[in-house]
């Protein structure tokens, strides 16, 4: 059984970074409730193209909830109303016929809008380049399981490693803070033996970069954790607060975090 939805869509249109931008309203008739939100946007774009108009620019890649590119704030919620779900995995059956839907880009100074719903998220890459890695000697691969990792540590690391870097945390934060992202990337490595040598340099370096990108400051609203499609727990932020204080107070100089491009 499939139902057809009539929707009123208000989509953010912006020609480029310098443009002020505005909402454009589209009446969508007979949208199948089987399709995903992105497919609904595809339907809209087909109609726009057929009418000789410019299609709405939005980012997407895997369409299976793992790449993190499909950034849209839907009715005030990053990735829409469904918990633990990316926009590409959100299906139209979660909407009702007659719904009005507002679609906006991630809004943060550190994520400037490139066009329509597409924002520049390079700030995240620069943060990772400043410590979100381990230095490993190349050569033959080490034996599997040669380095014991306790199950609890592996689980904690994995919870954080689930981060797909989509930026929903920044979009959801009333302060435009990237703390959940920074903390997830740090926590992922800080719970593993491979992450220990660069632990202090990592937290100092990554936070330094996040501040330089002009993200906001965390004031513990926890909206990030609620919006995260991978349900990264805000516990990782508390870990980062602790690790950062330790690194800042440590007597010895932290090992420089180098590299980054490779």
């Amino acid at each position: 059984m499939s139902a057809k939805l009539d929707l009123k869509l208000h989509v953010w249109r912006q020609k480029g970074p310098g443009d002020a931008g505005r909402f454009e309203t589209h009446e969508m008739k007979g949208v199948s409730d089987h399709i995903s939100f992105l497919e609904m946007m595809d339907v809209l774009n087909e109609a726009l193209i057929a009418g000789g108009k410019e299609p709405v620019a939005f980012e997407h890649d895997c369409r299976e909830g793992i790449c993190g590119t499909c950034s849209m704030v839907i009715n005030g919620e990053p990735h829409g109303p469904l918990k633990a779900t990316t926009t590409c995995q959100l299906h139209m059956r979660h909407f009702k016929s007659g719904d009005e839907i507002w679609v906006e880009p991630w809004r943060a100074r550190a994520f400037p809008v490139m066009k329509d719903l597409v924002v520049d998220r390079n700030a995240f890459d620069r943060i990772v380049q400043n410590g979100g890695f381990i230095s490993a000697n190349t050569g033959s691969a080490p034996d599997g399981n040669a380095l014991p990792v306790p199950k609890t540590d592996a689980d904690l690391a994995f919870e954080a490693a689930a981060c797909i870097g989509c930026g929903a945390c920044v979009a959801a934060c009333p302060n435009g803070s990237a703390m959940l992202f920074v903390a997830a990337k740090a926590s992922h490595l800080n719970h593993l033996p491979q992450g220990q040598p660069e632990r202090a340099a990592r937290v100092l370096g990554m936070l330094d970069q996040a501040d330089a990108e002009l993200f906001g400051n965390c004031t513990n609203h926890y909206e990030c954790g609620a919006a995260c499609p991978k349900e990264i727990p805000v516990r990782v932020i508390a870990e980062l607060n602790r690790d950062y204080a330790k690194a800042a107070l440590a007597v010895e100089e932290p090992r420089a975090a180098g590299g980054g491009d490779g």
């Binding site: 909402f23 919620e77 809004r107 100074r109 803070s177 513990n220 954790g225 609620a226």
Partner: peptide, 27 residues
Amino acid sequence: KLAAENRAARPQRYAVTQHDTSTLASR
């Protein structure tokens, strides 16, 4: 100072906002 930076971190407000875990007190 923090509050001023936090405002500046989102120069363009959302047309629609929803609160989930933040509270009257936290905001």
